[in-house]
Amino acid sequence: MEVGLDIILNATWETLYMVSVALFFGSIIGIFLGITLVVTRKGHILENKIIFSILNPIVNIFRSIPFIILLVAIIPFTRLIVGTSIGTSAAIVPLVLHIGPYFSRLVENSLLEVDEGIIEAAKAMGATPLQIIRRFLLPEAFASLILSVTTVTISLVGATAMAGAVGGGGLGDVAITYGYQRFDSLTILVTVILLVAFVQVLQSIGNTFERKIRRV
């Protein structure tokens, strides 16, 4: 193996950094967008045709752009936000824009699964729309939301591999630059094993939490 342990460790750290920061901001955007997409739809508690018909296609557009394209397409925007268009931090901006809309769809699905009768009961109690979201929709969808977060985190791990295109670093980057481009199979193997372990751990944590919340 041509790469040393220090490179692998550093790359692991970069991957963790990108995933956690992008997950944090992506979740905020995703939860906010997802809730808005649910409550503004027809017949829901804050029905608003204008907001819904603007947000819905925007989310679709972001969902349909391949990440590698998004990464380079928004370089000017990235520069505006973090002051540079290369490096680990620069990779986080497109990661957030990639994962936020994706997460919003998952949040939307989770919230729509909540029994409509619960909302009716909430309305009958005289709950405000915000109370309905906070006290009824989110708690009832919580277990399902945890699984969504898990899915999103795993998608992020995959997406960070492409961050190498803008010098983002991370395990995927190591696999491509050291492993693929220099024909070093062992490096590829090591990084892939690390990524697989990553995903396994994340999924188990997600499942454990979800089971705990659902009390099974």
Binding site: D115, I118, E120, A121, F136, P139, E140, F142, I213
Partner: peptide
């Protein structure tokens, strides 16, 4: 169908 919160 009662419409209770199952999470509470």
């Amino acid at each position: 169908h009662f419409h209770l919160l199952n999470s509470k």
